[in-house]
Nucleic acid binder design. Structure first.
Lengths: 188, 188
DNA sequence: TTACAAAACTAATGATATTAGTTATAATGC
DNA sequence: GCATTATAACTAATATCATTAGTTTTGTAA
């Protein structure tokens, strides 16, 4: 007896497939098989494979938003910023398929995806508020944090580094230095 | 009259295709058409599409090595490190297809690719030598620089940011802060 | 219970990668 | 120059995809 097939169910099984079998394994044939239906039946719920990919990317960004929000709640300042960075990196590490999905969100015009990105960045901006940065300074700050988060996620995925020096330590050091450094440039 | 078909020629046309038409456009059919031969003839030079992808990734890493080497020559210390970061980011910006190729180099076991990565990292290590860092410190330093380079490349590709605040400015600030910060932790 | 909408299905088409087997081309040895 | 051989092209075939069209089934609402 199979589950009811809905757009949500398709997204759920897609997430499982990309995380367990890699992003390239996401085919309509694979999804249909998992749902025990024939491939064309999927078109009752999605409009194309690209549509599914975009939906999956959006799904990933929503999870990201939630994780980051959760990580930042109850914290402030440097602690909050670092926690946000770690939340991003760890989510991407634990869900490699979602990582790929967000990266291959090719269409930079998609409204929903842009909205979700903006919402997530807004969390960081709220944490930065007490510092009363100029808009320009805030932009540089946010970009640096994003670059570190993206970059360490990529690094984590590539792997192949000395296990004796844990990556988390490198992440911690890099965020500390960047955050403290950025804040220091304000006090002068 | 068509060019002589060699593995090199295939790589060259592949590079052109991914940079101009996107990484997903790299198909054997597309390459064959560009070389004015039939698809199966490609198998005289490559063993599979995956083989081609891997070769392209290696090709990209070689260019990267060369660019980084060129950027660092004649410079030292902070200046050299920053130049290396910019060289990476700009190469990836100007060759988006190569960027994708290096990212989708899935196989972390590939000897040649690992060798090339190591060689490139060795350049950074050589620049760091005069600082007489502990091995651990040096590892954290290199990882941070790599994360910033990867991260800003991703950011650059995603685009969608305020053009009034140039990304290069953000990159410059982030590298300055990280590099100076790392060096400062040694003097204490 | 009938009418309609939603969601499944089959069948077909067109890309694509890949393999097997064949022919043409180029290089090499005499 | 010619025969041999290796290289690289080709055609033909198969399997896997996404996608569309048209049909049937299923479920819901009137």
């Amino acid at each position: 007896m199979r589950e009811k097939v809905t757009r949500q169910a398709i997204l759920q099984i897609s997430e499982k497939i990309v995380n367990q079998e890699g992003y390239e394994a996401l085919t309509l044939a694979r999804v249909a098989k998992a749902l025990e239906i024939k491939t064309p039946s999927l078109y009752n719920h999605i409009s194309s494979l690209n549509d599914l990919r975009k939906a999956l990317a959006l799904h990933a960004l929503k999870q990201l938003y939630h994780e980051i929000m959760t990580a930042a709640v109850g914290k402030s300042g440097e602690e909050a910023l670092k926690a946000i960075g770690f939340a991003y990196i760890h989510l991407m590490k634990d869900n490699p398929g979602l990582y790929s999905a967000t990266l291959s969100a090719l269409d930079p015009q998609d409204t929903e995806i842009n909205q979700m990105s903006s919402d997530t960045i807004a969390i960081i901006l709220r944490v930065l508020e007490p510092y009363h940065l100029s808009e320009e300074k805030a932009i540089h700050f946010v970009r640096g944090l994003r670059a570190l988060s993206y970059g360490f996620s990529t690094l984590e995925r590539q792997g192949g580094f000395n296990i004796d020096v844990p990556l988390n330590e490198s992440i911690s050091i890099a965020f500390d230095i960047f955050i403290k450094g950025m804040i220091a440039t304000l006090k002068k």
